[in-house]
């Protein structure tokens, strides 16, 4: 905490006494002022809403599609081997390079941003789910089978709970990645959202507003991660 305060005061002092160009580095007080103006103008709510909406859709879709895919890959060798090259390619490629392609396919706007964020986040979900399912003790599965568990039971009573810790860890990482996707997409082209705010005021050299935008993004990142952490604690209480 002291470190944070120290940083803020050094920043303020640097701007006040013009150790660095105040236009370029702004200052904490003007950032707070910019935040206030942003909130009062009502734009903050709009930008925040847009970004959160994009984030939710992209993250939700990647969870809904990614978890079954991950389970399939963890469960079945052939599926894993078949999908492995694609997953690793998407995992390690700089995904922004797909951005122009999304614009051609989906048009500039929310859809392309969601697609980018989706691509960013889904791989993490798949990889973690797969690792979680693979990590389940085979003895447990054999035990379930010998008690005549249906595939349905097997899935909901053994695989899902068994892999839960890993899956949620994956979701936590993936929401961060989805946020990166949303911000980059908005930065490149959009007319609303936190990334748009940053890019708009950045181009006008109003850095107090840019810092205000960055601040909000950090808040969103911390908030979403915390939410998932709370869910994680709730869901894994039985595990001790």
């Amino acid at each position: 905490m002291v470190g944070l305060l120290g940083f803020v005061s050094v920043w303020e002092a640097a701007a006040r006494f013009e150790l660095a160009n105040p236009v370029l580095i702004s200052s904490p007080t003007s950032v707070v002022l910019a935040l206030k103006n942003w909130a009062l103008s009502g734009m903050l709510l709009r930008d925040l809403g847009t970004s959160l909406w994009e984030l939710t859709v992209a993250f939700g879709a990647s969870a809904i599609i990614g978890i079954p895919l991950g389970v399939a890959m963890g469960w079945n060798r052939t599926t894993e081997y078949a999908l492995d090259p694609f997953v690793w390619l998407i995992y390690s490629a700089p995904l922004v390079s797909f951005w122009p392609l999304f614009i051609i396919w989906l048009g500039i706007g929310v859809k392309a941003i969601i697609a980018l964020a989706f691509l960013f986040s889904i791989v993490q979900v798949i990889i973690n789910t797969m690792a979680g399912v693979k990590g389940i003790d085979p003895v447990l599965v054999r035990c379930a089978r010998s008690f005549n568990a249906s595939p349905f039971d097997l899935f909901f009573k053994f695989i899902l709970p068994g892999a839960l810790l890993m899956i949620i860890a994956g979701l936590r990482l993936s929401i961060g990645r989805a946020l990166i996707g949303v911000v980059i997409g908005e930065l490149f082209s959009s007319n609303a959202g936190l990334g748009f705010h940053i890019s708009y005021y950045g181009a006008r050299l109003r850095f107090a507003d840019v810092f205000a935008g960055l601040f909000m993004i950090v808040l969103v990142g911390i908030f979403t991660t915390q939410v998932i952490r709370i869910v994680e604690i709730r869901l894994t209480r039985w595990k001790v």
């Binding site: 961060g176 946020l179 990166i180 911000v183 980059i184 930065l187 936190l194 990334g195 940053i198 890019s199 005021y201 950045g202 181009a203 850095f207 840019v210 935008g213 960055l214 993004i217 950090v218 990142g221 911390i222 991660t225």
Partner: peptide, 10 residues
């Protein structure tokens, strides 16, 4: 935790 790419304009 911040998407540092957002600092691009700065």
């Amino acid at each position: 935790t911040m998407p540092r790419m957002a600092m691009m304009p700065l």
